[in-house]
Simulated scan of single mutants.
Amino acid sequence: MAAALVAGGLTGVLVATPAQATEYSSALKVAGVQYDAPGSDNNSCTTGNTKAEYVTIKNFSRTTRVNLKGYVVKDAVGNSYTFRIDHYLEPGDYVKLRGGKGTESDANNVAYRQNCNFIWNNDRDTIKLIKPGGAYADTHSYTKSANDRDGNGYITFHS
């Protein structure tokens, strides 16, 4: 495109603005977040909707199988969840880390935080995916007004 500008007699500077300031080299990425669970927020373990709030972690590798054991998911204020058992993601596979209580399942691509409180703020937050050794695998900050154009409470990353 710069060559076209010069060839056309126009001069200018092209500045690429990345969607994310830092890109980490990791097969695992935060693919999306349902930060605002459908319905009225209710964090009751028996009748609430915290299970409808989730973050999707996907293995974007084409060849590498990744074990989630030891990975940590954190929000901006330090609420966290650590994958404590073996959970393997094949290339292209994903897991939904949900609020509420339940059983982690490779077959159903799901893990539960074992906590019925909401973790993702409905107006803005930061999602951090951290490798077992402490290095960042991925991170995303969002605001409802800037990133959720259709207002459905879901944002996609790395589409």
Rank of each mutant, 00 (worst) to 15 (best):
E90V: 11
S141F: 09
V55R: 01
L10W: 09
N108T: 10
C116S: 15
G48A: 12
D138I: 01
K101L: 04
K51Q: 09
S26F: 09
G32R: 07
A52N: 08
G92V: 07
G78H: 07
T56H: 01
L68G: 02
Y71V: 05
T47P: 01
K144F: 00
A111S: 15
I119G: 01
N49W: 00
P91Y: 07
V95Q: 11
L28Y: 09
D106S: 03
Y88W: 11
L89D: 04
S141A: 15
D150L: 12
A2N: 15
L14W: 00
Y154S: 04
N42C: 02
G32W: 12
L14C: 06
T64F: 06
G133S: 10
A2I: 15
F83H: 11
C45Y: 08
C116F: 02
E104V: 12
G100W: 10
T22G: 08
Y112I: 10
A16S: 07
V66Q: 07
D138A: 03
K69G: 05
G39R: 11
K69C: 11
S159L: 08
V15E: 10
V6F: 02
H158S: 04
V6N: 12
S159G: 15
D125N: 09
I57C: 14
A146H: 06
A7C: 06
S26I: 12
T156Q: 03
D123K: 08
V66P: 08
H140N: 07
R84K: 09
V6T: 10
N108Y: 15
P91N: 11
C116Q: 13
S145P: 00
T56V: 07
Y154A: 06
G8V: 12
N49R: 00
V33D: 05
D148K: 06
T63Q: 14
T143K: 02
G153W: 10
V33R: 11
H87P: 00
S26K: 02
N42L: 12
G151L: 03
T50N: 14
Y54W: 08
N108V: 04
I85L: 00
N147W: 06
G134E: 03
D41V: 04
G134L: 05
L28K: 08
A107P: 11
H87T: 00
V13K: 08
S40H: 14
T22C: 04
F118C: 10
Q114H: 14
A27N: 15
Q114V: 01
S105L: 10
A146G: 13
A135C: 06
K74N: 12
V33F: 11
G99Y: 14
E23M: 13
N67W: 01
V13D: 14
T126I: 03
T126K: 06
L89I: 08
S105M: 11
V72G: 13
G32L: 02
R98F: 05
Y24W: 04
D150G: 03
K101F: 08
V13F: 01
K101M: 04
V95G: 00
I85D: 05
D41I: 01
R113K: 14
I119A: 04
N147P: 09
Y112M: 03
A76Q: 15
Q20S: 15
S44M: 13
Y142R: 06
N43E: 14
G134N: 07
N147I: 06
D123S: 03
Y35H: 00
L10S: 07
G151Y: 00
R62T: 13
S44F: 03
R98Q: 13
